[in-house]
Design a protein around this nucleic acid. Structure first.
Lengths: 253, 253
DNA sequence: CCGCCCCATTGATGCATATCAATCCTTCCG
DNA sequence: CGGAAGGATTGATATGCATCAATGGGGCGG
């Protein structure tokens, strides 16, 4: 066989290898995906995807952080997601992206042409499954955020945000306690449906409550984990539907 | 062949045949999916899925309407989605559902055991693709809702809601103009992150603006389509990134 | 057909967060 | 090292929506 041995591919040492797109292929087939990839580098502020632009590419993040956002003519912005190394972005059912993606720190990413990627998926149907699982996780996360936006107050929102970033760090194999924020206050505000001032005040309040300590504006130490969690995680109804008519949910036939 | 001919299956006359799960199989294989289905009927208020219950089933709606919700111990509720005939629900990446699903009108649905369904999908990988597409659409819708919750005011939220229901009716081949609301005000409120009173006030205001007319509490006639749309649809930045450094988005290599 | 009950509507008030405005702090560059 | 600029914080005020409270109306059962 004259194909490149897996170990010689950059993919074999890439953080994203274990996640999403790239994890959907076996080592021996990896060169096929690598063949479609265009490596790209973005400065902070650089645009990976243009809102309203043709939806013809997909990105996989190798390093750095980005945000997915929606911007309106009257200057309102909603950040829909933060992207970490290993995340991918760009699949949509529309012809044009209804969101943009911007780097918030320097970013390295692999870009794939959607049409060519779809052909590869056609060839390796396993990729479909992996993508389905990832999208299912994304939906779960999205539901979580919907609840946060719809039903939490400012303090709970900011606590949830810190809790989330801490969680993302842990998932990347990093320590979860000093929380490092790659984004500025305006990004946090636009993610949580708040204003910069409110985010700042909530952080000050958390500090005053001795739940956190601010080493710098971008470095948060969680001091009182229980306190922060109880603000971030609103527990579900503990004994739901106890009096519900069992006929309504015939769990077994 | 001794298998049931497609035309003899109820599926051949089911509204859900053309959507999601059921559309992912060819006529000739349909009996396989049908074999896994348990037909179920729910009264208004009945529970299809129990929040925090084991995530072992998936539902496909044949008729009626349902909502997907998250309920907390302190009585807050966020409705995450409304379900219409043809929709499916129940895929999650968690072991337990982090949401419940309740019928808001009488519902007929097909229930599938997840493990058995996954085995069938294994056998027909095409289903994976179809599910991926559907989940991608769900993500797009979810992004839309995130923007609405994070950045629209009460009037815009309610206008968006009416616009959305109107759209759903059209997609089901029904007229989109007299908007029929199967849910009560509390459901609308919990969907849009508002209270019942605010929803009611917003509807009254829309009425006063002559954008809509209320034939009854559950029957809304759209009178001024442009007015309603301009409230519901916040236009995207028209000429985005015009001054952006082109190096940031090297669209062509 | 009446009356009750649930839900929607409308009104009055309070509060959380947005908005407007003024420092403060950090970083970067001369 | 000094000064400017962008971002964060803090303060003062305004406002939109929640909350509390009362009234209205439609549907269902007696």
């Amino acid at each position: 066989m004259s194909i490149a041995p897996y170990a010689s591919l950059p993919c074999s040492r890439c953080v994203a290898r274990e996640s999403t797109l790239c994890a959907s292929l076996a080592d021996d087939d990896m060169h096929r995906l690598y063949g479609l990839a265009t490596g790209q580098r973005f400065e902070a502020g650089g645009l990976l995807l243009r809102q309203e632009g043709p939806a013809d590419h997909v990105f996989s993040l190798r390093s750095g952080h980005a945000n997915v956002f929606r911007l309106t003519a009257d200057g309102k912005r909603q950040i829909l997601a933060f992207l970490f190394p290993g995340d991918f972005v760009g699949f949509t059912s529309e012809d044009n992206y209804h969101y943009g993606v911007a780097a918030i720190t320097p970013v390295e990413a692999c870009r794939f042409e959607r049409t060519r990627l779809e052909l590869l998926i056609e060839e390796f149907p396993r990729m479909d499954r992996k993508l389905r699982f990832t999208l299912t996780r994304a939906m779960d996360a999205s539901f979580e955020l919907l609840f946060t936006l719809g039903r939490k107050d400012a303090l709970q929102k900011v606590a949830s945000f810190l809790w989330y970033i801490s969680y993302r760090q842990r998932k990347l194999g990093q320590p979860d306690n000093p929380v490092h924020l790659p984004m500025r206050r305006a990004d946090i505000a636009d993610f949580m449906g708040l204003t910069v001032e409110t985010v700042s005040r909530a952080l000050s309040l958390l500090k005053q409550m001795k739940a956190i300590r601010l080493r710098s504006a971008y470095e948060v130490e969680i001091v009182d984990t229980d306190r922060l969690r109880s603000l971030a995680i609103i527990v579900a109804e503990p004994a739901p539907w106890l009096h519900e008519d069992p006929d309504y949910y015939p769990h077994k036939d």
